[in-house]
Amino acid sequence: MSMAASTSTSASSGRASALPKVNGRAVVMTLYLVFLLLPIYWLVNMSLKTNAEILSTFSLWPQELTFRNYATILTDPSWYMGYVNSLIYVVINTVISISVALPAAYAFSRYTFLGDKHLFFWLLTNRMAPPAVFALPFFQLYSSVGLFDTHIAVALAHCLFNVPLAVWILEGFMRGVPKEIDETAYIDGYSFPRFFVKIFMPLIASGIGVAAFFCFMFSWVELLLSRTLTSVDAKPIAATMTRTVSASGLDWGVLAAAGVLTIVPGALVIYFVRNYIAKGFALGRV
């Protein structure tokens, strides 16, 4: 009798504590997400205001909605060419990184060879290398070979950290593919290149997508090297923005709009890679 009573109370207390716990979770997540989104919201909010409104009145949402800031950016070549330049070197970099990383990652995931561990470690150190250390040497290297202020210079410079990143991520995905598949294909008379393109690459398609996404992202967010290696013709949007801050310092609406536009590429594809974000940042592990 007493035992039944005690179990029933413990059960009811368990239920009572379960209900607020669910709410507690929701509250924590809501608070955290609000903390994350508030600064971004503020940027979007500002990009939709006129400069006069930004400076004169303080409001939580635009009183007179305007898209003029976006129009300014999208019609002025010195602004929108920044986006074009960034996109060009980012795409070049992603293509180079993925195409050289694919065979290398395959080698690391399937074979042991002389010095493989050292090489793998050396690649990691390059992902971790501070861009500040490389800024000046890169500047001199690319100036001396006449590549300064070209898209290819920035794309090559970003290979420093993106190629190791791509190798590590792809290796993480490839180790999940059983080796029997390779062996069966070879028995079936596939040559290595044909096997790799026809059979293996479709199997790790999601891995290639994730690696490409992260190469794109890390090249897109980097400023120090891309700013150092360009002056006019290949100037990235990031550098265009910093110049405007220091020079005029007043056109907040346009600055905010430019910032919002740099978030767009990430925001567009983030849904597709949502389950791989942790894996990508952790270099293909996890």
């Binding site: 997540m29 955290y32 997400l33 994350l36 989104l37 971004i40 992202m217 897109w220 967010v221 980097e222 400023l223 990031a238 923005m241 910093t242 910032g259 740099t262 978030i263 990430g266 925001a267 983030i270 849904y271 949502r274 389950n275 974000i277 940042f281």
Partner: peptide, 15 residues
């Protein structure tokens, strides 16, 4: 949650 939480990670650092 995953999508919203990842958003700050993908913003260019100077932005």
């Amino acid at each position: 949650c995953l999508v919203l939480m990842a958003l700050p990670l993908l913003i260019p650092w100077n932005v």
